[in-house]
């Protein structure tokens, strides 16, 4: 079977004279969580924008389920859900209407919408806020709206950008449990984060970006043996990697 998400020799960014990413390659398979790790400005968000099809590669390609963005945009986008770093909500829609419009856009059937939204609202303790507007939400609640909308679609691939900021501990726990659940059902998850201790526990593999290049990649054990530090933590590996000592 092909890889779910395949990034191959990707060079890209905003300005053709100054690419942000240089020859980036990695995969996300079905049934795994891949952590995308890097300092501010390392190229995580740019990578995510390329995967979403918001930026065009200058070189190389991004494929989901073996197909590039330009082969069929609708199919490509149907295959992924995105949870942004800063929640982006429609000011004039209630929580429920956010779920409604998401279901419409991704062709989720009404019966599925009812069932899934009920479970999600309960899991994230947002049942009472069903008819609230974004102006009434705290930062964490806004993040929950983003998460619930993404989970509503149930696509094969999830792109998650820094999901933990602003979430309360119970929200983080619910999010992680659901992510693990989805993974066990065969979904692939690409998650960028700075919370390394959580990433170390939940991600199956890691891609460490530095200055727009992949400096280290693999499972914890693979990375440890690459740098000959059999009991290094992710924090230590990450700091070594960003100092350019690998």
């Amino acid at each position: 079977m092909k890889n779910l998400l395949e990034i191959e020799g990707l060079t890209g960014g905003y300005n053709p004279n100054r690419p942000v990413l240089h020859d980036v390659s990695f995969n996300v398979n079905r049934g795994e969580i891949v952590g995308l790790i890097g300092l501010n400005g390392a190229g995580k968000s740019t990578t995510i924008k390329h995967v979403l099809g918001l930026l065009e590669p200058m070189k190389g390609q991004v494929k989901i389920d073996g197909k590039g963005f330009h082969e069929n945009r609708e199919d490509y986008r149907k295959n992924l859900a995105f949870i942004p770093e800063t929640p982006m909500l429609y000011d004039e829609l209630t929580l429920w209407e956010h779920m409604q419009v998401t279901a419409m856009a991704y062709g989720v059937k009404e019966a599925d919408l009812d069932k899934r939204s009920g479970l999600l609202l309960k899991e994230f303790r947002m049942e009472k806020m069903r008819d609230w507007f974004p102006s009434q939400f705290s930062k964490g609640m806004r993040q929950k709206v983003m998460i619930m909308c993404a989970f509503l679609i149930e696509p094969p691939l999830y792109i998650v950008d820094e999901p933990f900021v602003g979430l309360d501990p119970i929200g983080i726990q619910s999010f992680l449990e659901m992510i693990v659940n989805l993974k066990e059902q065969g979904a692939g998850i690409l998650m960028s984060t700075h919370i390394l201790s959580t990433a170390e526990r939940y991600c199956d593999r890691f891609v460490i970006l530095h200055d727009g290049k992949v400096v280290l990649e693999g499972t914890m054990n693979e990375m440890r043996s690459r740098i000959n530090r059999p009991d290094a933590t992710l924090d230590e590996i990450y700091i070594l990697a960003t100092r350019g000592e690998i």
Binding site: L54, F82, Y90
Partner: peptide, 11 residues
């Protein structure tokens, strides 16, 4: 400039 309308699989 709304990002979601650019991400939805819509024709």
């Amino acid at each position: 400039g709304n990002i979601w309308l650019r991400l939805y699989p819509l024709r």
